[in-house]
Design a protein around this nucleic acid. Structure first.
Lengths: 345, 345
DNA sequence: AAAATGTGTAAAAACGATTGCGCGGATAAA
DNA sequence: TTTATCCGCGCAATCGTTTTTACACATTTT
């Protein structure tokens, strides 16, 4: 049970009959070492099951080969998918991924950033949070901490990836307009966080561009809790004339809306159309299946990792890169021309 | 843009006019140091914005305050939920969580374990993987690497948490039996990984205990890919007499089954009952909503963290602890007495 | 007054790696 | 043969902490 102390490079050196310095150079094939000693050292290392201590290396080399990632909620499938892909790509490049949940709490975020910095992560991928403070990161980003933003503005000097939420919402809205809808209810989580803001902006732009009035009473954007969404959906359903379509900015939102609709017996898409910005199992498999705007989580994660690796690879700070991840509309069964349920025009 | 070099304890010591050793003791309130110098040192540290280098501390103290967690897939909502809770609890105790995806690949798992060990994580939480090899972990676990299993047997000397998959499947099966079902089709992902094995065992036990024959042609347990499940479901639907209930061991499985049912126009629960082991948004919100066996992801994550902290806290290896996480049946709309669709008895 | 305690601090030795420097010896050029 | 060159390796410094040891000085005891 008692585990023997780990073998250090010192043990290897002793076993090979050389000094530690030489052992190190032999193992890393660095500097001038004879083939003979390289062979002796590596075989000794092999025999002892030697593995370099990453901590000591980090201390000496001033690089931990760890990147941190901050999101509001790992258990959100969107983030989970992105994290998964990012982790795979980073792993492949020899980096480990340290994750942190901000719970959309500004104080927690600050705390975690400090924590990660103390831990000397080489880079930080930072997702959306209610309070965005580019200052903080401009200050942080430097030689030894590279920062990449994810759906978040993180200062002029850093790279970032943004999903095209604005375009997504525009396309969704246009789709509904084209079907003939004019009273399109909008349900969103927080307008305080970038994706929410962008989506609402896209919705409004599309309406205006189409000459349709943007009515405040059709926009409900505050919290994304199930209860809140449900009650807002029910409230929207009492309007007369009633909305003929529900645009859901987020899959949790959609879940709440669907529940509300079901509760009142409104049929989709006969009585009302539903469109979700953000795809999910639920949207795909619900019956009727829900027309959605989708984007590729795997790509998002990989691009984030790629951006980070680029930052990490270059000694000097290169020009920051901005990537806009495209989205696409997936037509399914939940959208149709407006019916005449409750007082159409 | 250029970031000034970080302040070390040396700078603090110089600023306070003491030696580094004294500075360290003052900051950690350890050993004998006068109140006066403590005050001087802490104020100097404050002024310089000093934060100890976690790497150097790790090297010296032989503890990284990091625990690793290995799962097959972070983007699986079950794991994501567990990770979230575990991370929160560990964070609270001053530990960070390093995650790794095994992709259910034995070689990748081994690679990651080695990697994490090199990284000197203090502990490792290991989730299910197809090839279970208690030997490997018995060997690993020792003074400087604590191991906790999650739905996985990890050796006699380590702690572990198991969700009661067997009991869950038993209860599910009993529920269907009580409704009058006798031909209960079973769809599962892999029987090679512990949860799958346990569930299938629970199903068989319940049937036998009820005097119902376990028919191999009703059991389909191999892969969980959507295509596979779909084709298996379709194949099961061609049997005559046809199964009157589908027991889905996993939410992805359920999705495939639902799709198959829909494709053939079988109504739930009129034509066939559906029950899912493992709850999900989809099960909750589908129409009809799907009766499911649920367990609390948050608790699972917290208990895992707790077990790990216990291991980490104790100097000596205490007796390993086994926790069995209970499950409960949530009755919804997808189960009813068997109909008479295709050749009932 | 001398010896025995006690107190606060400086100095140095770890922790486990990497790397610049210099030294001895072999080889090549003059 | 002498001098320059180069190769292989050991030595020691370094990264930023913590902790042990030792020492100087003040205070108490005999």
């Amino acid at each position: 049970m008692k585990s023997r102390p780990r073998n250090t490079i010192k043990d290897v050196a002793a076993a090979a009959g050389v000094s530690v310095g030489t052992a190190s150079r032999a193992l890393n094939r660095r500097g001038r070492v004879s083939e003979a000693t390289i062979a002796r050292v590596t075989s000794a290392a092999e025999k002892l099951g030697y593995e370099p201590d990453a901590i000591a290396q980090s201390l000496r080399l001033k690089s931990t080969k760890v990147v941190g990632m901050l999101v509001t909620d790992i258990s959100n499938p969107f983030f989970a998918g992105v994290i998964r892909a990012a982790e795979a790509r980073l792993q492949q490049a020899g980096y480990a991924l340290l994750i942190g949940n901000t719970d959309n709490d500004w104080r927690r975020e600050k705390y975690l950033v400090d924590l990660f910095r103390r831990r000397r992560v080489d880079g930080l991928i930072i997702g959306p949070c209610e309070k965005e403070d580019p200052e903080m990161f401009a200050f942080l980003g430097g030689e030894d901490l590279r920062i990449v933003g994810f759906d978040r503005d993180v200062g002029d000097t850093q790279s970032a990836l943004h999903v095209d939420h604005r375009g997504a919402a525009q396309e969704a809205t246009r789709h509904l307009l084209a079907l003939g809808h004019r009273r399109i209810a909008l349900l969103s989580s927080s307008h305080l966080v970038r994706p929410g803001r962008e989506r609402i902006a896209g919705y409004s732009e599309a309406l205006r561009h189409h000459g349709v009035e943007v009515r405040e009473d059709l926009i409900r954007a505050r919290k994304s809790s199930m209860e809140f969404v449900l009650s807002e959906a029910l409230s929207l359903m009492t309007l007369r004339p009633a909305p003929t379509a529900f645009l859901c900015l987020g899959t949790r939102i959609m879940a709440g809306v669907l529940q509300g609709l079901r509760q009142n017996g409104w049929r989709v898409p006969e009585d009302v159309s539903v469109l979700s910005v953000g795809d999910s199992d639920l949207a795909r498999l619900y019956s009727p299946s829900i027309t959605s705007i989708s984007w590729d989580l795997k790509s998002v994660g990989e691009v984030l990792a790629e951006l980070m690796l680029r930052e990490l690879g270059s000694e000097k700070a290169e020009a920051p890169e901005r990537v806009l991840m495209p989205t696409r509309l997936i037509e399914r069964e939940s959208c149709a021309a407006p019916g005449n349920l409750h007082g159409a025009r």
